[in-house]
């Protein structure tokens, strides 16, 4: 008896999910951040964000196909976090780090918040 562990499987699946998102295939929600719109899959959002998990497990909200975020949320920060959800890569531009961290706090992405904190501390002269 053996088990074959495909070490690339998780990243292969994530790449495919990102391709589906790029092609707007089976995306089922639009996230509105100020005036910008982002299409995504609810399951990916729920898997990565405590806020979206809370929203979409609520029986009254799970069928919504558009969600507006707090107008204070930075659309660029959200775009970077959405990209992270679908690629596992978090782009940290110095000019946006606070916006990214505050957006991660809002989205309840605690591990990303911790990582941003550590990055800021290590970058502080």
């Amino acid at each position: 008896d053996s088990c074959i562990q495909f070490t690339r499987h998780a990243s292969d699946v994530l790449l495919n999910l990102n391709r589906l998102r790029s092609r707007d295939i089976l995306t089922d929600v639009t996230i509105l951040v100020n005036r910008q719109q982002f299409r995504a899959h609810k399951t990916v959002l729920m898997a990565c964000s405590g806020l979206f998990y809370t929203i979409f497990t609520d029986s009254h909200k799970c069928n919504l196909n558009a969600i507006s975020l707090d107008p204070k949320v930075d659309p660029e920060g959200f775009a970077i976090l959405l990209e992270f959800m679908y690629t596992s890569r978090l782009t940290l531009k110095e000019s946006l780090i606070m916006a990214i961290m505050n957006t991660a706090i809002y989205l309840q992405m605690d591990h990303v918040v911790d990582t941003c904190h550590r990055f800021i501390k290590s970058s502080d002269p």
Binding site: S2, I4, T7, D12, R19
Partner: peptide, 21 residues
């Protein structure tokens, strides 16, 4: 899976969805 012989497969596991058809 304790006691089961685990073999690591490093290659691609599934098809790649193209950027467009």
């Amino acid at each position: 899976y304790e006691g089961v012989n685990t073999i690591k497969e490093l290659g691609r596991s599934i098809h790649e969805i193209p950027r467009q058809d």
